[in-house]
Simulated assay, not measured.
Amino acid sequence: MLQCVRGTCTEAATAGLGYDIVRTMAWIYDLDAATMAGARRNRDVVVPLCPMHADRIRVPLGWDFQDQRVAEPKPEPMPADITEPLFEPRSRPEPEALAEPLPQEQPSMLERAFRAAPVRGR
């Protein structure tokens, strides 16, 4: 499998870029084994590109551009009239009302020791 020719891209090439300078036109097509074999026999220039770079390709001003790639089928959206939830939401228990206030916490032993220690330098 070919690798995309753009800069430091390491993705696999899925599209080929072809161009004709005399007719000022460029085209992108799906890149597969049969296409590569035909291009090698005809000595055509094949510029392999990954999907991201193929989608971003721009041609010079005034050139004709043809995207000959076959679009992948998109997944069908879910019908909007679904009445049953896909999952049951978890129920959260209600916080219990506190009948009596929380008791005041006693200071820790370390806090009491520091309070009783004399302060130096004053």
Rank of each mutant, 00 (worst) to 15 (best):
C50F: 08
A117C: 01
D44C: 04
A117R: 09
L86Y: 07
R56V: 04
P77R: 05
P60N: 05
R6Y: 13
I21E: 08
E88T: 15
R58Y: 04
P93E: 06
G62L: 00
P77F: 07
W27M: 09
L102F: 05
A117P: 01
R58E: 11
Q3T: 15
W27S: 15
W27H: 15
V22N: 14
T10K: 14
P93Y: 02
A26W: 01
P73E: 11
V46R: 01
R56A: 15
A113D: 04
Q66H: 13
K74H: 12
D81V: 01
C9A: 07
C9Y: 04
L49F: 04
L102E: 13
P77L: 09
R69N: 01
E100C: 02
A97N: 07
E111S: 08
V5G: 11
P107C: 07
D44R: 09
Q68V: 05
S91H: 01
P101V: 09
W63R: 04
L2Y: 09
M78R: 14
C9D: 03
V45F: 09
G38E: 13
D44M: 11
P118M: 03
Q68M: 12
P107M: 04
Q104W: 10
Y29I: 13
L61R: 15
F114Q: 11
D64I: 13
V119H: 09
I82M: 14
M109I: 10
G16M: 05
M52Y: 13
P77H: 01
I21Y: 06
R58H: 10
F87W: 07
L110S: 06
A13Q: 04
P75C: 08
V45R: 11
V46S: 02
R90I: 14
A37D: 14
L49M: 09
L61C: 03
V119I: 12
N42Y: 09
D30N: 12
A34P: 07
D20G: 00
P101K: 01
R120P: 06
R92S: 05
P85T: 07
P75M: 03
V5M: 12
E100L: 13
D81G: 07
D32F: 01
M36S: 04
A99N: 02
D67G: 08
M78D: 13
T14M: 05
M36A: 12
C50G: 10
T83P: 00
L31M: 00
Q3C: 06
T14C: 10
P60K: 08
P107I: 01
P89V: 13
D67I: 02
L61Y: 06
P103D: 03
L86C: 01
V46T: 03
Y29F: 11
C50S: 09
A80K: 14
